[in-house]
């Protein structure tokens, strides 16, 4: 028996919006510690790793480990039926091939339940190595979204160059080129608006904007986003999910032919 109730159901709605355009389907792995998901997009260019800790749910019950294969577009459609104020409960039996979602209004007057078929998904689980990154940039999530959107007008790729002075995002294409430079500004009044850079070694990497724009669907989850980079390895784009977990997107770089 698996049962997990999140009082702030809107967080789960946002989580689904953050992954459903990148992943068609994925397996939620549930154990006593919480729910997690790891999946690559269909081109195997990016990887999503998502964790929701058991402590964030009330109640959380997982009698034995289970893997729930889910069509994320279907899950997202059903979650659109929940109001932002609703609590969301996810239930799955031990033998069943279905999952049930229960949406409950804050005063308990309205309770909706939706049942969905589970899928058998063959997953290619990757071992994510522990890495110390050369550059870790924290910036407002909305700013990162804006940068990715703006540079998509110019080209298909963005080159991110991080030095101790700041971080520069550059794109070029048929119409010309564009550069956006952000300086460190850790002294701003509001913590959420800060840009901070921790750098061991300068790095320059190029990434497909198409995927970064998919990652930016997680913007409503968190005021800040963290970019972790080292030369010649995948970029990590991390958004916190309230106090209960995180979604990390990994993106393989592009290299010159």
């Amino acid at each position: 028996m698996f049962e997990a109730r999140l009082a702030q159901g809107t967080l789960l709605k946002k989580v689904l919006e953050a992954i459903k355009d990148l992943l068609n389907e994925a397996t939620w792995d549930c154990n006593e510690n919480g729910m997690s998901l790891q999946a690559m997009d269909s081109s195997h260019v990016s990887l999503v790793s998502l964790t929701l800790n058991a402590e964030g749910f009330e109640p959380y019950r997982c009698d034995r480990n289970c893997s729930l294969g889910i069509n994320l577009a279907s899950m997202s459609k059903i979650f659109k039926c929940a109001s932002n104020e609703d609590s969301i409960t996810i239930k799955a039996g031990d033998e069943g091939d279905t999952i049930t979602y229960v949406f409950e209004s804050p005063n308990g007057d309205k309770v909706s339940d939706y049942e969905m078929k589970l899928m058998d998904i063959e997953t290619d689980h990757l071992g994510i190595p522990d890495t110390t990154y050369s550059c870790v940039v924290k910036l407002p999530a909305a700013e990162f979204q804006r940068i990715c959107r703006d540079l998509s007008q110019i080209g298909e790729s963005v080159t991110i160059c991080c030095t101790k002075d700041g971080v520069r995002f550059s794109a070029s294409g048929d119409l010309g080129s564009g550069n956006i430079k952000l300086a460190q500004n850790a002294n701003v009044d509001k913590e959420d608006e800060a840009v901070t850079i921790e750098m061991q070694e300068a790095c320059t990497l190029t990434f497909a904007l198409r995927y970064l724009n998919f990652f930016c669907k997680a913007t409503p989850l968190s005021p800040q986003v963290t970019l972790s980079m080292s030369n010649e390895v995948p970029l990590v784009v991390e958004y916190k999910i309230g106090e209960m977990g995180h979604v990390r997107y990994y993106l393989a770089p592009k290299i010159e032919d």
């Binding site: 260019v45 689980h125 497909a208 390895v233």
Partner: peptide, 14 residues
């Protein structure tokens, strides 16, 4: 033109 690398070139299958 840059070529796009894949995640499987970096992280091993488990």
């Amino acid at each position: 033109q840059d070529s796009q690398l894949r995640m499987t070139q970096f992280f091993p299958s488990e």
